[in-house]
Design a protein around this nucleic acid. Structure first.
Length: 576
RNA sequence: CGGGGUGUAGCGCAGUUCGGUAGCGCACGUGCUUUGGGAGCAUGGGGUCGCAGGUUCAAAUCCUGUCGCCCCGACCA
């Protein structure tokens, strides 16, 4: 590809809307153009990168016996009614009507389509297990797209669906897919991607993992143990807390006028926050009832865990007066029975708590849960904390970090096969319901994540395996015949040898050419210049600055070929 | 959906307080000079100032409404 022929445009100024590195470089470097909120067109540079990522994914999916298929983007609502998701998913699912007035949806994921395709085809146990996958456009009407390709509404995704006759078989295949994912991310140049246990959300199922690239700009909070291999999304991480010292005290009502927040109460009574019992009020979405969570004052409620426990969507409670709840002075003793109460496990870590007295201007001190409330049921609904206790190894070794979710895998079980009536005949001639796993990777997000992980102040540093081109050939002073001729010759020879070359043949200054090359991020750079040719050399360097050589012009071609081969091999070795 | 910010040329911005008919830098076209880290001079093209009403002799500027975009939160395979 010659630069002069390529559709591209670069900017010196950082666009005002961009916040994170990958977004900035991908806009400044002419990788993509915003079309609408969370909707982008991709320029040729980006399409070349995503095509390479797709091919790596395709190769690994085929290696675990995947069969590539293609599901439709637009589906009739009836298909989504079968699984129940037409009604259970809120606004992320785009609904519209066709000309006949039929309800239609835009595909945001394809479990329904996968079951629809397979259910009348895989009739016998002999056809199991099998996995089908596609690489295709999804549309999700996200409440908030952000960060360039990190979170968009329309995006390309590889989604795979496996079907099994036994749980053991699903688990075994799930592990194979887990390993395939590790190879995919390593081959794409981000071997640092880790898998964490995760919440299964709207997908359903029990066991799920997310593949995370750890970076401060990530959208998810992760809990990682520095002593063992426990790693979980904050949403699902189990929590235990040390018992605090101190004896039970007598239950005493004290005046705490105007003290509504736990900070105010703690300061007023001279107590640490962990000696208070905090009340957090939520309203259930299914029956509108109020749920009050009691949790130790220094901790926070993990709303995902609470939601899973309650088996209902929840939102912060607004109007507590209507339920005879005295906001600011809520406590478990003497609380109205118009609300449901949930005790976090942390309420058992102290013998003596300060809590609200359910009376304006009063708190109790010396509340002992067991003595004053009897045997209450507790449940773990707290957020993990930095330095907290690892639920696996028991050491105080939890660290909190942020991550971008680049892929995920789920053991779905029979959620879709059962609801959509998929059956097969087993060895004994009995009809059975198969079980499923599903496995996703966001292609564009992965590209942006690689950029996020590998860049310097001047632009992305693409790994050889997914770089838009393998070599960037810069002809400085391309207006001089000697330069032009030699650069043309190298370009031709590299192309003939099957090397992917972007040839900057513009008559621009060295500064412009190098800056644009930095933004393009091609791993190997070849500079042909009058100065070099005068000494009979060309300059060959790596984008990551780990190499800078002046090579005799007669040996340049061989040197480039060998270096490209070495760099490709390096990528492959990385993945082993 | 809540909070904050912001819409003026492809990009970055000034002009809005105090109404007078739109400007700067980059980018783009042309010519000459220049050439190893975002060159110089000259010259040219490009904007219904987000949109719709209203006030006024006159609106980018004032008023009302509305939409888009960005950030934080909520939400989210």
């Amino acid at each position: 590809m010659k630069f002069t022929q390529m559709l591209t445009k670069r900017f010196k100024d950082t666009p005002a809307d961009c916040q994170i590195a990958s977004h900035i470089f991908m806009i400044r470097g002419g990788y993509m153009k915003n079309v609408g909120n969370g909707i982008y067109s991709l320029f040729p540079v980006t399409k070349r990168i995503t095509a390479k990522i797709e091919n790596i994914i395709r190769d690994e999916m085929n290696k675990i016996d995947g069969q590539e298929v293609l599901f439709p983007v637009v589906m009739p609502a009836s298909l989504w009614r079968e699984s129940g998701r037409y009604d259970s998913i809120a606004n992320e699912l785009v609904r519209f009507h066709d000309r006949s007035g039929n309800d239609m949806v835009l595909g945001m994921t394809h479990e329904e389509a996968a079951v629809q395709l397979a259910r009348e085809t895989a009739e016998s146990y002999q056809q199991y297990p099998f996995m089908i996958y596609q690489i295709q456009t999804k549309f999700r009407d996200e409440p908030r797209a952000r960060g360039g390709l990190i979170r968009v509404r329309e995006f390309t995704m590889k989604d795979a669906y496996s079907f099994h006759t036994t749980k053991e078989d699903l688990e075994e295949y799930y592990m194979r897919c887990h390993k395939a994912y590790e190879r995919i991310f390593a081959r794409c140049g981000v071997p640092e991607v880790i898998s964490v246990a995760s919440d299964s959300g709207m997908m359903g199922g029990k066991v799920a993992h997310e593949f995370m690239l750890c970076t401060p700009v990530g959208e998810d909070s992760l809990v990682v143990c520095s002593e063992c291999d426990f790693r979980a999304n904050m949403e699902t991480a189990d929590c235990t807390f040390d018992k605090l010292e101190g004896e039970a005290e007598a239950l005493t009502k004290v005046a705490t006028p105007e003290m509504k927040t736990i900070e105010e109460v703690a300061n007023f009574l001279g107590k640490d926050m962990d000696r208070l019992l905090k009340a957090v009020a939520y309203q259930r979405e299914d029956d509108d009832s109020i749920v009050i969570v009691f949790i130790r004052g220094d901790l926070e409620v993990n709303e995902v865990k609470l939601r899973n426990y309650l088996k209902s969507e929840i939102h912060p409670a607004l109007d507590l007066d209507a339920y005879d709840v005295c906001a600011g002075f809520i406590g478990p003793k003497g609380l109205t029975n118009k609300v449901k109460v949930v005790f976090d496990s942390s309420v058992l870590t102290s013998e003596s708590f300060v809590c609200g007295a359910n009376e304006e201007g009063y708190h109790f001190t010396g509340l002992n849960i067991k003595r004053d409330l009897g045997d209450v049921q507790t449940v773990d609904v707290a957020k993990a904390v930095e330095g907290g206790i690892c639920p696996v190894c028991g050491k105080h070794a939890l660290t909190l970090t942020r991550g971008i979710e680049v892929g995920n895998i789920f053991q779905l079980g029979d959620k879709y096969t059962a609801s959509m009536g998929m059956k097969y005949i087993d060895q004994n001639g009995v009809m059975q319901t198969p079980i499923m796993g599903c496995y996703g990777i966001g292609v564009g997000r992965l590209a942006a994540s690689v950029c996020e992980a590998h860049h310097d102040d001047y632009g992305p540093i693409w790994p050889m395996s997914i770089a838009p081109w393998q070599v960037q050939l810069c002809a400085l002073r391309a207006d001089q015949a000697e330069v032009r001729e030699f650069a043309d010759e190298i370009y031709r020879k590299l192309q003939d040898a099957g090397v992917e070359v972007i040839y900057d043949d513009r008559a621009v200054s060295a500064g412009v050419m190098f800056s644009d090359a930095d933004l393009t991020g091609v791993p190997l750079r070849v500079v042909v210049s009058p100065k070099g040719l005068k000494n009979g050399t060309v300059e060959i360097s790596k984008r990551d600055k780990s190499m800078m050589e002046k090579i005799e012009k007669d040996q340049a071609f061989d040197f480039i070929m060998n270096t490209v081969k070495d760099m490709i091999k390096e990528c492959e070795d990385y993945a082993k």
